[in-house]
Simulated assay, not measured.
Amino acid sequence: MQCGDWVVGKWTGEPFQVERPLGTGANGEVYLVRTRRGLAAVKVCPNASDIALEWAVLERLHRVSGTFPKPMWIDDHGPSAFFYVMEWIPGTPLSQAAARLTGHAAAAVVRGIAEGLAELHAAGYAFCDLKPDNIVIAGDPPHVRFVDAGGVTPFGRSVRQFTPYYDRAFWGLGTRRAEPSYDVTALALVIVICLGGLAPPVSLTGQTPAQRQSWLRRGIRRWPEGVRPLLEQALAGRMDARQFAAAWCRQAAARPARPGPRVPTAPGHPTASRGRPAVAGASASVAAGRGPGAGRKRGRDWTEWLMWISLIGALTSTACAWLTSLGWLR
């Protein structure tokens, strides 16, 4: 599709105009389009079965979670242009926002990712391709959304799509089987690599799992001592998403977790600034970097409020679970 093209669905008759490309996935391309209902995103794929599968997953996920884009309609345009239209999520991918996040903001983002994964897992699915480019900081106030459902897989099946640096099998930490622990390990890798400011060298691909784990351990040691055991447990798959979210919030409330000095992202690394333009142009309010008005006295940062609200929510959920198990709540 070219910018300015008009497309009319074969079956629905719904028209849309292509505004610009947003990105390329493992099995298709995504475009920003203008429809009669406003701006939306279109996933186009030459394979009808891939589009039908992703559409079915999005519909199921929309009934249980608002983290992924809302599906709008599915159609085709010609023999090799199968597509579905979905909600467009304007925002900033974590790969671009990470360098600007303060300790409180980073903790709120981690909490949002973990909660989104927990909702997905409750529906019986694993994300599988969790990576910074698929995590978007969107909205006002900012919150976490997921994009690209192409890798979402029912529990028990083989992982269909993955990114090596965020794949536990690449590090020798487990199998490529869709299950909650696969995503929790990926979340820990996102924290260590992306939020930790690391740039895995290309030479890692030619090393053994033991050598890769040695490099990963050095990255973990850059984090405060109180955070390291939590990251190690998540990497080992010994926590579920909600447990990780609650533990991370407790740690962040005590002392915002931050690693040592950031390492510049290496050219060509998957989290380099030339990531997907799919969510460019979001508000920079998720960042706490010094801007033109940084010298003025400010009120309490929204991220600190969000952090405390998240902590209270986690403690309340835990208390209710214990009271229910003891039979005090019905």
Rank of each mutant, 00 (worst) to 15 (best):
V57P: 09
Y125P: 05
P71T: 15
G103R: 00
V85K: 01
L130M: 12
G124H: 01
S80Q: 05
L130Y: 06
V64T: 07
G124E: 02
L53R: 12
W55L: 10
W88I: 09
A52P: 00
R60L: 11
H143R: 12
P132E: 08
P132T: 08
H121F: 11
P71K: 07
K131N: 15
D140G: 07
K70G: 10
P141T: 12
L120P: 00
G139Q: 13
M72E: 10
Y125G: 04
A149G: 15
E119D: 07
A108W: 14
D148P: 10
P79M: 07
W88Y: 15
V64Y: 02
R100F: 14
Y125F: 15
R145C: 11
R145W: 11
A97L: 13
W73R: 00
A123D: 04
H77C: 15
E115M: 06
A107M: 06
F68K: 02
H62F: 15
L120W: 01
G78S: 04
A122F: 01
L58G: 14
T67M: 14
N134W: 08
G112W: 02
L53W: 07
W55G: 08
A138V: 12
A122D: 04
P142Q: 08
R111I: 06
G91H: 07
P79V: 11
V109Q: 03
P93Q: 06
L61P: 04
V144M: 09
L101P: 11
F68D: 08
A56N: 06
L130K: 01
P90A: 14
D148C: 14
D148A: 12
Y84W: 12
L53C: 04
H121L: 03
W88N: 12
T67N: 01
A114T: 03
G116W: 03
E59V: 14
W73Q: 06
D50I: 09
S80P: 00
A108D: 03
A52W: 01
V64Q: 03
R145V: 10
H77N: 04
A106Y: 09
P142V: 15
D50P: 03
A122G: 04
A99W: 09
G139W: 11
P79A: 13
D140L: 13
H104L: 08
G124N: 04
I74Y: 04
L58E: 09
A52G: 04
T92K: 05
A126Y: 05
Y84R: 00
C128N: 11
G66C: 07
A122E: 02
I135N: 08
S65H: 03
A56D: 10
A118F: 00
E119N: 01
D76N: 01
Y84D: 02
L58R: 06
L117H: 04
A122L: 00
P141V: 10
D129P: 05
V136S: 10
A118T: 00
E54Q: 14
H77L: 06
W73K: 05
A118E: 02
